[in-house]
Design a protein around this nucleic acid. Sequence first.
RNA 1: GGGGAAGUCGCAUAGUGGCAAUUGCAACAGACUGUAAAUCUGUCCUCUUCGGAGUUCAGUGGUUCGAGUCCACUCUUCCCCA
Length: 287
Amino acid sequence: MKRLIVIVGPTAIGKTATAVRMAQQMHTEIISCDSRQFYNEMNIGVARPSPDELEAAKHHFIACRSVSNPYNVYDFEHDALALLDSLFVNHDTVIAVGGSGLYIDALCKGINLMPDPSPELRNELSSRIANGQLDQLISELKRLDPDYYNVVDLKNPIRIQRALEVIYTSGLPYSQLIGKPLPNRPFEIEKIGLRCQRDTLRQRIYSRVEIMMTQGLLQEAESLITYRHLNTLNTVGYKELFCYFDGKCTLQQAVTDIKNHTWQYAKKQISWFARYNDISWQDIHEN
RNA sequence: GGGGAAGUCGCAUAGUGGCAAUUGCAACAGACUGUAAAUCUGUCCUCUUCGGAGUUCAGUGGUUCGAGUCCACUCUUCCCCA
């Protein structure tokens, strides 16, 4: 049976290097599951693998789209599965690597098919939320999908909005759509989780941010300022520098914020991956 | 040496007589099915059987039923004049 090795772990722990090394040993290719490395305009700030690393092992889903044409999890899953099919023709094992938990889950377990809402519907719902009508939306959700109402985080506007978008577009309860069983993957999945000591990771993050700044993160952010309204640019490493460009903080403060926010992101990743019960952990960076 | 301003829970802030005391940041824990590096929740003086209990707003003393808040002195910091 074909096998997918999935490497996960918090940002800056060394997933890329590990994946490249394994890919070289196994003479195989790498599928990136990183929700920000998809975009060709984002490089330094999202720690895209270096040209050397990209050369050392063939990567997929790196810099493959424009920020103005964002990916979504379902399309990613679809494309990744199609790619896997073709890779498995010549490889027994393929490596997936990334820090975006939702994308990892989509690749490993799948995600239910749901219709895309129209931009009009999305705009309408988000403006209602912006106008303080979240309570009304919650009532609509309660009426249209009591099951989901009972489990959703009612304080999270995005969850409410998403559910209503799907309900209004499909005419079906959201809970019914996400409740449909997903078929098992026709390949074996082996998850490897990278972890290290807390302080080590923190220091790696801090110094990586400094390195990004010397590599020109400031200029990269400046070049993307016209896209700042896109959620894709609502990203650690960019949003803080946008604040600096706005004169809302000093550059030094922005860099400090990037370090802290990256650390917070890493902790959220650790939380996400901690719930995997089919993972083997690998301690790294121990001397 | 003279005059003025100010010290609040890691940092920053609110509070100017009435419930350990506002808000932001940081920290810590967590949730997550097409925005996911997004979004959201909880904890955040100490102890706790989670009902409460104890000790706090630079320090000491005082006024008061009651003080972060008013008064006196002390200490510290900053600013202005010498």
